[in-house]
Design a protein around this nucleic acid. Structure first.
Length: 489
RNA sequence: GGCGCCGUACCCAAGUGGUAAGGGAGCAGUCUGCAAAACUGCGAUGCAGCGGUUCGAACCCGCUCGGCGCCUCCA
């Protein structure tokens, strides 16, 4: 039974879908005016994993994730660069797909854009005005928070408290300082659409209400996003959605914690952020490996807690994965005709599966899920020591693959253990290393055979020289008890 | 000023009232010509501090200290 922490109730609760075996969920995506940083990656990954786990549990998931493509920051960026807003948004939507693709984030079922839902937004705004929950001033339309008694329920704030600390300049035209814009009149040169209140553009919050209701219905199961969206974004979404429909909006509100750098929130305003593409560009490892490292790192802490990003934490993720892929290499080898202990492996794999599900069902406790894999790794290594048949090896590898798929881990056929040639370029340039030359698999096998001969002749000097030669090409050797060797890059 | 979060071994990190998971690093072994990998053993009488509730608390309550987030765009 999956339980999730619901921000709305402040408690962890059993998840029950509105319709059996079907989940409808909406996640606030990004505003496309710049490249995504690791914080965006974490959020995208958390909901990607939630979606995968729901599907693993047999649910059909209708997953909607939006792009905010009309916004002050986009307009500003377009003006700075002297291009259209559309140029900006399409560039960063492409970048988003590219970056998230490298991380193995699956696409949502639908990924709507705000600008494609202006009609729905206007309709909803009219509905709110018609119900007396919103009012027009000049070309702007505001939602009147005092007309919505439950305002503050999600963020646990009272209207009075908000006023006290309001840092915003008070707009005299608003009836209450906390009233927020549903529709903004547009200034010359800004994107604009005709509306009953004159040419303008949507406010920020209304787009998510309009799009989620259009694609998922007035009441749906899960609504998610980063912690910082709780207030005001999600609070406002609830007010305007429930206000308009008179129905419950989303049942479970899920929010992920921040990625930090040196214990501080990573954000654009602080300038301490790392973009996803920057990490890939600087990585010493291949794209696939870097993607999996990042995933492992991002899942090493439960999604609601803070997560500190550093080179060391990435390195630890890499080391952990090395251990798994080392095992997978061994599992890929043919098992000798060893005494059958098949039941022991099967039993152990089934236990691990149950433990994995228990961890994931506990509010997506991915650190515990990773610990389950670690323990399984250790146990399979032990069983391997007493000999496993080819079939048992395949079963074990398959268990890692199928369970790991929920987290997007352990899917690679080839893992890169050492730093790549590309990654060492700078060291070579700095004269710290001599250039390394790519070496073919055939050549490696040939050298290993030569080394084996040398070992047979007990010419360890030559054997070690060959090993050193291979090492200089980034190849590591492991000798097996039967005299043969396995190697890895 | 309001709302809220966090503080567990050298590092990362679980723990949701019943006596401290897991990983990394370190040390010591087994195996090995050596190496690598793997395996075995060692590692917090204590969970920021102080009180309280309880038969029993890292977990509940109160206070203190330290760090952080939201209240303005923000994953």
């Amino acid at each position: 039974m999956l339980t999730l922490f619901n921000t709305l109730t402040g408690k962890q609760e059993p998840f029950e879908s509105i319709e059996p075996k079907q989940v409808r969920m909406y996640v606030c995506g990004v505003t496309v005016y710049d490249y995504c940083h690791i914080g965006h990656a974490r959020s995208a990954l958390v909901f990607d994993v939630l979606r995968r786990y729901l599907e693993y549990g047999g649910y059909r998931v209708e997953f909607v994730k939006n792009f905010t493509d009309v916004d002050d920051k986009i307009i500003k960026r377009a003006n700075e660069q002297g291009v259209s807003c559309e140029t900006i948004t399409s560039r960063f939507i492409d970048a988003y797909y590219e970056d998230m693709g490298k991380l193995g984030i699956e696409r949502a079922t639908k990924e709507p854009k705000a600008t494609e839902h202006i009609g729905e937004i206007i309709q909803m705004t009219e509905r709110l005005v018609g119900k007396g929950l919103a009012y027009a001033v000049g070309g702007d339309v505001y939602f009147q928070v005092e007309k919505y008694p439950a305002y503050g329920r999600l963020s646990k704030r009272k209207l009075e408290d908000l006023q006290a600390g309001a840092r915003v300049d008070i707009d005299e035209r608003k009836r209450h300082p906390m009233d927020f814009a549903l529709w903004k009149s547009s200034k010359p040169g800004e994107p604009s659409w005709p509306s009953p209140w004159g040419p303008g553009r949507p406010g920020w919050h209304i787009e998510c209400s309009a799009m989620s209701i259009k694609h998922l219905g007035e009441t749906f199961d899960i609504h998610g996003g980063g912690m910082d969206l709780i207030f005001p974004h999600h609070e406002n979404e609830i007010a305007q959605s429930c206000g308009a429909t008179g129905k419950e909006f989303a049942r479970y509100w899920i929010h992920n914690g921040f990625v930090q750098v040196n214990q501080e929130k990573m954000s654009k305003s602080l300038g301490n952020f790392f973009t996803i593409r920057e990490i890939f560009e600087k990585s010493k490892w291949s794209e696939a490996v870097t993607g999996e490292m990042l995933r492992y790192f991002l899942l090493s802490t439960q999604y609601r807690g803070p997560l500190d990003f550093s080179d060391q934490s990435l390195k630890e993720a890499k080391n952990a994965l090395n251990g798994f892929y080392d095992l997978f290499n061994r599992l890929a080898e043919t098992g000798e005709g060893v005494p059958k202990v098949e039941q022991a492996v099967r039993t152990r794999l089934d236990e691990a599966q149950r433990a994995f599900e228990a961890a994931m069902s506990n509010d997506l406790n991915t650190p515990v899920a990773l610990a389950v894999f670690q323990t399984l790794r250790s146990d399979v290594n032990k069983l391997l020591g007493s000999g496993l048949s080819t079939q048992e090896r395949q079963q074990a590898r398959e268990a890692f693959r199928s369970l790991g798929a929920v987290l997007g881990l352990f899917q690679l056929e080839r893992w890169q253990f050492g730093e790549s040639l590309k990654g060492l370029e700078s060291a070579v340039k700095a004269g710290q290393l001599t250039p390394m030359v790519e070496i073919s698999d055939e050549r490696i096998e040939q050298m290993i055979t030569e080394r084996r001969e040398a070992k047979k002749q007990r010419d360890f000097k030559l054997a070690d020289a060959i090993r050193a030669e291979l090492a200089s090409h980034g190849i590591t050797i492991e000798d097996k008890p039967d005299g043969t060797s396995r190697w890895k890059r």
